[in-house]
Write a protein that binds this DNA or RNA. Structure first.
Length: 250
DNA sequence: ATAATATGGTGAT
DNA sequence: TCACCCTATTATC
């Protein structure tokens, strides 16, 4: 379930489990054996998320960079639970082991590579000090569809397919509308809504944008949670976008 | 046993 | 725009 909220939540929880203490690392699956050996026994100094990227810095300025991709999971285990399945990295923090499986990326990076990563990622609504202007200005000048812009991590970081649909529905914006045809007030609202929804997801670990028995307003829905009208969908930026043609006109 | 599916991203065409 | 990478779970034969 990896959109930005998941990764920020992981950074917080893994950090709470192990910052300030040596960690043990191994790669039961074998595909991160060298990296794991390099950090094994070192003190975990900092964990943070940048958009959907998870960064864990160890003593000696060595950082493990993890991207979960579509399938990746990082699960907290009991100390007595052995790794199951294809576990790329088992990180034994002071309080609990964490098992990483299925990531798109799991590699050691140096400070220069970390800078490079930061440079190509747009502002992240979950990072309190990130300024929205760079993202919102770019949206306001673009001919591309707003639904495509919200998935572009170099424009704004952390939004995935569920949040893009839910954010645009909450604001009544058709995902096909060009970014340049949004108003400044709408762009401000996009940032504020993204931040609010992602923060809520970070706290709870789930994406819930509607009260009641259903969790989502339009994503993968057949009827709109607001007006009960039929939901439209089409492929946009390589993924299926969902919207309500009644609530999100124009 | 095999297929379909999933909240993502990259690199080639 | 497409092919491809990563894994687990659920559905279908």
């Amino acid at each position: 379930m990896p959109e930005g909220h998941t990764v920020h939540r992981l950074a917080r929880r893994i950090g709470a489990d192990g910052i300030g203490h040596p960690a043990r690392a191994c790669s039961p699956q074998g595909r991160f054996a060298e990296g794991a050996a390099a950090i094994d026994g070192r003190v975990l100094e900092e964990t943070q998320a940048v958009g959907k990227h998870l960064l864990m810095r160890f003593e000696g300025d060595t950082t493990v960079h993890v991207h979960l991709g579509l399938f990746g999971k990082f699960r907290r285990r009991r100390a007595t639970t052995p790794p199951r399945g294809a576990v790329r990295l088992r990180l034994e923090t002071r309080r609990a082991p964490w098992d990483l499986s299925g990531p798109t990326a799991c590699a050691l990076i140096d400070p220069a590579e970390l800078d490079e990563l930061r440079g190509r990622i747009g502002p992240d609504p979950l990072r309190a000090t990130d300024e929205p202007a760079r993202a919102l200005d770019r949206i306001g000048r673009s001919k591309r569809a707003i639904g495509a812009l919200l998935l572009d991590q170099s424009v704004i970081a952390g939004i995935g397919n569920v949040y893009r649909a839910e954010i645009l529905h909450a604001l009544g914006i058709d995902p096909r509308r060009p970014g340049g045809e949004t108003t400044p007030a709408e762009r401000d609202a996009i940032w504020a809504t993204a931040r609010r929804m992602l923060e809520d997801g970070e706290k709870t670990g789930r994406i819930v944008t509607v009260d009641g028995d259903r969790r989502l307003a339009v994503y993968k829905a057949s009827e709109c949670a607001s007006c009960a009208g039929a939901i439209s969908s089409e492929s946009m930026a390589n993924r299926t976008v969902y919207w309500c043609p009644i609530c999100q006109s124009g």
